[in-house]
């Protein structure tokens, strides 16, 4: 049972990665690791910043 649960969690994590759901966690990791002195953006700020940057830097989607 645990193995199934673990497998499901692994899949959810993978799928989340593909969707980009873990972007904030990765940002925090980077922020902490690179030794910035100022506080990191909050989750709300981060996602705002992320979509707002897309406004000025559009990427095509494929056909």
């Amino acid at each position: 049972m645990n193995a199934i649960l673990e497998g499901f969690r692994g899949f959810a994590r993978y799928f989340g990665g593909v969707m980009g759901a873990d972007a904030y966690a990765k940002y925090l990791e980077h922020h902490e690791a690179s030794g910035h002195t100022e506080a990191p953006m909050t989750e709300r700020e981060f996602w705002r910043d992320r979509t707002d940057r897309q406004d000025n830097n559009p990427q095509g989607r494929c056909c």
Binding site: Y14, F15, G20, H30, R53
Partner: peptide, 27 residues
């Protein structure tokens, strides 16, 4: 160029799925 936003090292398996989702569409 790591900045935690656009330039982020991504696990190859995840990136494979991500790239595939980006290129595959209705075509």
């Amino acid at each position: 160029k790591a900045d935690g936003k656009d330039y982020v090292r991504t696990d190859r398996n995840v990136l494979f799925g991500h790239h595939f989702a980006a290129i595959a569409g209705a075509g």
